[in-house]
Design a protein around this nucleic acid. Structure first.
Length: 181
DNA sequence: CCCTAGCGGTGCT
DNA sequence: AGCACCGCTAGGG
């Protein structure tokens, strides 16, 4: 899969009230999103697309959608996501994650069941950790079985933040969770 | 509360 | 091939 253009690994900034995110694009769409620096962040996949007119258009849409999401309003339309970097298993998980609606949550076990591999619970966690596009691929909507937070590669503070913006209770039922930083 | 065993995918040797 | 990670879970001290 190399509809490679100029192999330009440049990220494009998205200023938000919560800090500056960085977005990466391929020829197929958004392929990576980084949280603002400061806390833990993931190593985003490098984008390969030069900022064509289309990429710029995507970027505007992504920026708008992200800002909306952070403001607690579900983005109505999101640009195409390029998830081709993942393994077959990861892509299956990510697709399942995208079906979890705004404000809803699932456990890792439920996601495993949803992809028809009920025992691959822990592997689902691994796939979530490898998610290149947080927020839009809502890995933050996956909680531990006891409604505890579970983990989050971008830092649990972000997971809480995202859940809060969706009106989800992040383990509110069971206060005895091991929080994070 | 803590500990353990079993689980599946991934990435490194 | 093997092996050591893990954003897990269920079951027992």
């Amino acid at each position: 899969m190399k509809d490679n253009i100029a192999a330009q690994a440049r990220g494009m900034p998205i200023p938000t009230p919560d800090g500056e995110f960085t977005a990466y694009y391929s020829a197929r769409g958004l392929c990576g999103l980084e949280f603002p620096p400061g806390t833990r962040q993931r190593a985003a996949k490098a984008g390969e697309a030069v900022p064509t007119a289309q990429v710029r258009r995507w970027h505007v849409a992504v920026s708008k959608a992200l800002t909306l999401a952070l403001a607690g309003r579900p983005p109505e339309k999101v640009p195409p996501l390029d998830l081709s970097s993942g393994t077959a298993f990861q892509q299956r998980v990510w697709r399942a994650l995208r079906q979890i609606g705004w404000g809803r949550t699932k456990s890792y076990a439920q996601v495993a069941e949803a992809i028809g591999n009920a025992k691959a619970v822990r592997a689902v966690g691994g796939a979530c950790a490898a998610n290149p596009i947080p927020v839009f691929v809502p890995c933050h909507r996956v909680l531990a079985a006891n409604q505890c937070l579970g983990g989050f590669s971008g830092g649990l503070a972000w997971k809480r933040r995202l859940l809060a913006s969706e009106g989800s209770k992040s383990g509110g039922a069971s206060p005895s969770l091991h929080p994070g930083p």
